[in-house]
Design a protein around this nucleic acid. Structure first.
Lengths: 231, 231
DNA sequence: TTAATAGTGTCTGTCAGACACTATGTG
DNA sequence: CACATAGTGTCTGACAGACACTATTAA
């Protein structure tokens, strides 16, 4: 007589995964780290790790801890993306991934590279372990769709930049060219950057461009088409 | 010599909470259920429960299970809202709440009321146990902000409705009146409803209105103001 | 016919997109 | 000066908002 089928275990574990993005030469790159344990030992995945209730005050803290441990980075733009939670996504059992995405300027990031961390153009990635491909795709989609009506892309800029630099970043994210006049009107309306008084770009054989920096503590103004709201 | 301070426990638990919303007489209502266990026994909270890895295929299934168990409802519009995860939100310890929001038409919902479930206008709620107030506020904010540019409000409609009915729902969610012509133009563009051929509203002392129903499997078209995208 | 709401035609101000034009640096 | 890119002035088509007008029913 066969043994009774064992009940499915009533256990689960909780992780945080981070899609870390930057932009280099018009291409969107994401950080991949090499796994140091089973399963999938040695394979490249999104940076992630278990939530440590004893150490982490909350999920965001866990994300920051993981970012620091795996990429040596502190508090960039970091925002919750989605929570993936099911029985199949990880071979170790029922698991929860609270996933985040982060944006960092390329200049802050080049030094993070080592034998266990590499930056890869997202368009070159066709598969990843676990359900990380899906997480990556959602992050990229989120960033692209937020680009049009938010200040999000300024987090990819170095401390000082010109409006032409900024426009190129928008164009890279959107995959299309923008009209200069329209772009500058919108950036001014969004009020997300400010002039660095007196500072201009140097070294080019033409009129030097005004330098700007990201404005502190300003939030997006959603473009509101509004179905004819009265009064 | 005092005992060594015990290490914080490295444990956590995972729940799903659902903000169930409907609209009645121009007011947004949410379902509250009475707690049947400690902590907070007897208090009114958002419907929620533990994830059961043995029974639930994924978090969405858990949300559906909870909705059915607590409110007797099946598969309305149900979408992940946010994941709240920290050490303080629940007195029992480090906890994760994968929260969802659901929209249901009022006619599908009135029969769910019993001594352990009530519908309350969200504007009348000033506090809730745990961090449920924050969850509720985020859900309401999400629904209101999605109203302008998505088909979301049609999920609050009964099976057959007139465009004037639909406009009133939008107006209730937005808290402002809309122009009839503009509203109808937009609804037509969004392509979220379809005429019920030959069916008109009856019983009113004036020209009867065409009846509509929600169109199947159509998703939102984001209003895209686009910074001057070329080509 | 009146009353009331359904549904449509159409004017207008605003503004995104387009693009030409001026400004200002280097060599 | 020529050249290149920075930065601005301004025209125009499209369209959201406004609102008046027609349509259709009950009483």
């Amino acid at each position: 007589m066969p043994e009774k089928t064992p009940a499915k275990p009533n256990e689960l574990f909780v992780t945080v995964d981070v899609v870390l993005l930057t932009l280099k030469e018009g291409r969107l790159l994401t950080a991949l780290v090499r796994r140091t344990r089973e399963p999938r030992l040695g394979e490249w995945t999104l940076p992630g790790g278990f939530v440590h209730p004893a150490d982490d005050a909350d999920a965001l803290s866990a994300a920051n801890r993981i970012l620091l441990a795996k990429a040596g980075l502190r508090s960039p733009y970091l925002e919750q993306l989605y929570t993936f939670a099911d029985a199949e996504r990880d071979s170790r059992g029922w698991s929860v991934s609270i996933s985040y995405y982060a944006l960092v300027p390329i200049d802050a990031v080049e030094k993070s590279v080592n034998e266990n961390l590499k930056w890869v153009p997202v368009d070159d990635i066709s598969q990843l372990p676990f359900d990380h491909m899906r997480i990556l795709q959602m992050a990229v989609s989120r960033v692209r769709s937020k680009t049009l009506y938010s200040s999000l892309p300024v987090h990819l800029m170095p401390p000082r930049f010109t409006l032409t630099d900024l426009q190129k970043v928008y164009e890279a994210l959107l995959g299309s060219t923008l009209d200069k006049r329209t772009f500058r009107r919108r950036i001014e309306e969004l009020d997300i950057v400010e002039e660095i008084t007196g500072a201009v770009a140097e070294g080019a054989a033409h009129r030097p461009a005004q330098l700007y920096r990201r404005r502190r503590k300003k939030q997006l103004a959603v473009a509101d088409s509004n179905l004819g709201v009265k009064s």
